[in-house]
Each structure stands twice: as structure tokens, then as C-alpha cells.
């Protein structure tokens, strides 16, 4: 099996985060890159009212042939990519299984329930420990910090995309994804996203999975 072949059919990835973080676009770009490679892809977005603040997940169902439903059945995720740490756990709770791999940003986005005093936000160490226990392997990275250093917090999703591609989570190459980025953005935005994507690829090279 080659490095960029489909490891499993269907391959189920859930890209999650909080409204406004850009995970819907991220899933769309992956979906497009995979479609361009000839895969049958379904990307299902699950969210409530079209507003900030709620959890938003995109379900990517990737197959060589068949179209799968926009909702991944429980316990069937192969990959979880999260732009927010507790959202990684939320998805893991419903769709996790002993074989799932998790990559997540570590920057919290505090739920309304926490800021308004009704609930507590767990410590990052507790989050990573819980994820390590439930996943085959995990990688937690402060991608938001890198995005902030680049001057644009919205680049977090592109950095995480680079990380996912660099870790060979999907049957696509970096060039496949960059082609989609080029198609999506004007030159100025493309350049910014391209370098964010590259940072993600670098992170993949310099970080190790926690088993």
C-alpha cells in the first residue's frame, strides 16, 4: 500500500471546533482535494443555529466508490482533527474507538456555560491524558499560538491542515492541498495560507505522536 493510498474504505474523519474557527472551510478544502483525486467524498456539517459559539463538526466520509452519509455512525471515526481541545474530547466520546487518531489545537475557546459560571473547563493536562487513553495516538499542538505569531488567528485551521497532511492522515499530498488553496484564495490570502500550511507540515516533521 502506498503512502497516499486510502488506508480504509470508508475513511471517516471528523474535523471539529467551535463556530467561527474555520473548521467547515477546512473540511471543505480537504473534501475538494480528495474529490479532485477521484475519491467519492461526503462532507457533512453539523451545527445548530448559524452563529458563533456552538460546537461545529464536519464529517468527511472518503471512499473509492460509494457515497456515504453525511453523518458518521457512532464509534466509527478513524481520524479526529480538532481546533479546540475539549471539542476533541466531545467527538472522541461519541465517535472514538481504540483505533482512532486525534490531532488537536490546544488553545481553549471557553463555552458560554463556562464564562457565565455554570460549568468548569478542564485543565489541558486532563484533556490530553483522557485523549491518550481513548485514542490509538494523539498529537496536541498550540497551533493558535503559531497563527498569532503570524498575525492572524484565523490561520489556525490551515496550520492544522498542514499538520494533518504532513502526518499522512489523508490519501493526498501537500501539493494536492496547496492546489486547492490556490484555487480558493486570492494571491495575498493564498500566500498567507500557504506559509501557514507549510508551518503545519513542519510541525508534523518535528513532533511525535503520544501513544
Amino acid at each position: 500500500m502506498t503512502k497516499h493510498a486510502l488506508q480504509k474504505d470508508p475513511l471517516n474523519a471528523i474535523i471539529t471546533g467551535v463556530g467561527g474557527q474555520g473548521n467547515v472551510l477546512m473540511a471543505q478544502l480537504f473534501g475538494r482535494a480528495l474529490t479532485d483525486k477521484g475519491f467519492a467524498v461526503t462532507v457533512g456539517d453539523t451545527y445548530g443555529a448559524a452563529q458563533r459559539g456552538g460546537p461545529v463538526s464536519s464529517h468527511l466520509r472518503i471512499s473509492k466508490q460509494t457515497l456515504y452519509s453525511p453523518l458518521t455512525p457512532s464509534g466509527q471515526a478513524d481520524i479526529i482533527i480538532s481546533l479546540e481541545p475539549v471539542e476533541a474530547l466531545r467527538v472522541l466520546g461519541g465517535w472514538g474507538n481504540p483505533g482512532v487518531v486525534v490531532i488537536s489545537n490546544t488553545r481553549p475557546s471557553y463555552p458560554f456555560d463556562v464564562t457565565s459560571g455554570g460549568a468548569d473547563y478542564p485543565a489541558l493536562a486532563d484533556i490530553t491524558a483522557a485523549a491518550e487513553e481513548l485514542a490509538q495516538k494523539t498529537l496536541f499542538i498550540d497551533a493558535s499560538e503559531i497563527a498569532l505569531e503570524m498575525g492572524a488567528p484565523v490561520l489556525t485551521n490551515t496550520i492544522m491542515s498542514g499538520l494533518a497532511v504532513g502526518l499522512d492522515l489523508f490519501p493526498i499530498t501537500a501539493d494536492d492541498f496547496i492546489a486547492v488553496l490556490k484555487n480558493q484564495f486570492d494571491d495575498k490570502k493564498f500566500n498567507l495560507n500557504h506559509s501557514a500550511f507549510q508551518k503545519g507540515l513542519d510541525l508534523a516533521a518535528s513532533n511525535k505522536w503520544s501513544d
Partner: peptide, 27 residues
């Protein structure tokens, strides 16, 4: 079985213990 029953229990208990609800709210 979508996943092993012991794993299922553990995953649900983890959410219960650690994951706060994320209610929709005015921005």
C-alpha cells in the same frame, strides 16, 4: 457493537466528567 462495550463506557464517562456543555449564546 459499534465499539467494545468497555471502551464505550469509558468514553461516555470521560465526556460526562470533563466536557462542559457548549450552549449557543449571543456573540
Amino acid at each position: 457493537e459499534a465499539r467494545p462495550p468497555a471502551y464505550d463506557q469509558q468514553a461516555k464517562a470521560m465526556v460526562e466528567k470533563l466536557v462542559p456543555p457548549r450552549s449557543l449564546a449571543l456573540c
